[in-house]
């Protein structure tokens, strides 16, 4: 028995969300009194792989195959499931990322494993059952799902498990899986990554704005605040529908659900569909000129005022704070 974790990389580097997943998987391995094995696919340098040991992977299976340089989910699913079978892993853990969403369901079907997607907590093993809490109804609620199959797959939401370093090293092993031609039917022809920007789903700090900003030409104040904080930018649905901001910034029930430490909402009224996507933020700050805006009801801190006046001041305050600390 063991726990297997798939460690996603972006351009050969692991992101914080990957280490979160490893820490989470290690905690599960501890619960089950077993070892954690990591599977890395792609071109990742030795130094980078070594870091996985620090988060609890006792062995690291390194798969470096030219055909798997880009993310081909069907082939990746085969490789990960095969490794799970070979290592006798009962639990497979991965990130509930865009790629994870293309991978976890395929692995679950291959292993005939129950899948808990969007997991936000460690499994509960009381009474011989295996239950996991996940978000449901687009962030409006949580569901407790029981995985009754022999094998289990869990996809962990970003920002839902604390990193934990341990004093240990992992053993890196080259692993050569079998790859079927029929698993390579998609061709990734290009990958574009904005490396200078923080990706919204993983962001710890988010500055978001709505229709209150009046037009796309006014987003500079939002970008300045985000830059001063080191935050990602986001928006409400009407803003992306109008083409003021790209779709991938749209937060809410029909957009991205985020769970940052800090969500600053500027000129957003707080419609139920928007709140669904932000309710698991740790701290919410609302800036709105209307004291009756529903968003204040779910905020931790609020300022009633004009965004065009308050936001630049806040940016200055953040800069002053950063230069002192």
């Amino acid at each position: 028995m063991s726990v297997l974790v798939y460690v996603e990389n972006a351009e050969g580097k692991f992101k914080k969300s990957t280490f979160e997943v490893v820490s989470y998987a290690k905690a599960i391995a501890d619960l089950l009194s077993t070892d954690l094995i990591a599977v890395s696919i792609g071109t990742v340098a030795q130094d980078e792989l070594n870091v996985l040991g620090k988060y609890g992977a006792s062995r690291i299976l390194n798969i470096s195959d030219d055909r798997l340089k880009t993310f081909v989910n069907q082939a990746y699913a085969t490789v990960i499931s095969e490794a799970a079978e070979k290592e006798g892993a009962d639990v497979v853990v991965l990130a509930n990322s865009f790629s994870g969403k293309g991978l976890a369901p395929r692995i679950a079907v291959k292993l005939k494993a129950g899948l808990a997607d969007s997991a936000i907590g460690l499994p509960n093993l009381e009474n011989n059952s295996f239950t996991v809490r996940k978000t449901a109804f687009s962030g409006k609620a949580f569901a407790l799902v029981e995985l009754s199959s022999a094998k289990k797959v869990i996809a962990l939401n970003p920002n839902s498990h604390q990193l934990k370093e341990i004093a240990a090293e992992g053993k890196i092993e080259a692993y050569q899986p079998e790859i079927k031609e029929s698993d390579l039917r998609i061709k990734v022809t290009d990958v574009v990554r904005a490396t200078d920007k923080i990706a919204l789903p993983d962001a710890e700090l988010v500055v978001s704005a709505g229709r209150g900003l009046k037009g796309p030409e006014n987003w500079k104040i939002i970008e300045d605040l985000a830059e001063a904080l080191g935050a990602a930018t986001a928006c409400s649905k009407p803003v992306s529908d109008a083409g003021w901001r790209p779709h991938e910034e749209h937060v809410g029930q029909t957009g991205i659900a985020v769970s940052p430490n800090l969500y600053i909402a500027v000129g957003i009224s707080g419609a139920i569909q928007h709140l669904a996507g932000v309710s698991s933020s740790k701290t919410i700050v609302v800036i709105n000129k209307d004291p009756e805006a529903p968003f204040f009801k779910v905020a931790d801190y609020g300022i009633v005022g004009d965004a065009f006046e308050v936001v630049p001041k806040l940016t200055e305050a953040v800069k002053a704070y950063k230069s002192h600390s």
Binding site: I186, K187, A194, D202
Partner: peptide, 10 residues
Amino acid sequence: IEGGKEMIKV
């Protein structure tokens, strides 16, 4: 994909 996009042919 996180912070970007991927082009695919199939």
